[in-house]
Amino acid sequence: MKNFFRILFLVIIIIGFQHQTNAAEKIEYLKTDWSFKGLFGKFDRAALQRGYQVYTEVCASCHSMKYLSYRNLAEKGGPEFSEEQAKAIAASFEVKDGPNADGEMFIRPGKLSDKFVMPYENVKAAQAANGGAYPPDMSVLVKARGGGVDYIYSLLQGYEDPPAGFNLDDGVYYNKYMYGNKIKMANQLSDGLVEYSDRTIASVEQMSKDVTTFLMWAAEPHLEARHQMGFKAIVYLIILTTLVYFSMKRIWSRVETEV
């Protein structure tokens, strides 16, 4: 047992090192309670649905989400829109399909199986429309940033007037949490920007939290299944380990050596 703790200690040291590496730039992110953290962490369904609303109404005009399909919106562990709702959402987008029998491309309403329609045809078009900056695809954005959800949540609320003497070019904005404090995305959120159907007040803080929750789900659509399975797996392992421990004691009692 003593040895096990030593091993655990080593593991902790290593993780400690890793943590330090990630926290190379010491900025305190804004904190909030995330429902999906912890052993039993689950997504807040309503927050996911609101977050989707913020995404489509605000972010989606520039940011793609190419790995998500409309069917995902109705899947278990996600925003869990009803299938009808998801179909309606999909149908509200125009999808380029084809070629048809005449060899021509055509536009049709979206289906559940379609991927989220991208705001721009390609990266170059996106850059051309955004002053040379490419609005990153948001499918795995949360996992692609060191601070994860806390970083995104903070960034959305991190717009400030630059300190005196801080030089900003045209089309560049000051953000407290951005690496180097310069960001090419203007502040997008303002109080009451969207109208939530569940009457939640759309403060900047609320919208940031909702859309970040949505992004977390987008990056880890199986997070709930993972947490549930993890709990079962670990409980199972602990029980099995205990049984094996006593069997081992029993078997080794035939020899005088301690195990």
């Binding site: 096990f4 091993i7 655990l8 593991v11 052993l39 993972r226 947490h227 399975m229 993890g230 709990f231 797996a233 670990i234 392992l237 602990i238 099995l240 380990t241 094996v244 421990y245 069997s247 081992m248 078997i251 080794w252 195990v259």
Partner: peptide, 20 residues
């Protein structure tokens, strides 16, 4: 059985990383 016991302990740590 001793290796098995140690392996199970190891798997608990492993599972923690994988799932959490």
């Amino acid at each position: 059985i001793k290796d098995g016991f140690a392996l199970l302990m190891f798997m608990i740590v492993f599972a923690f990383f994988v799932f959490y």
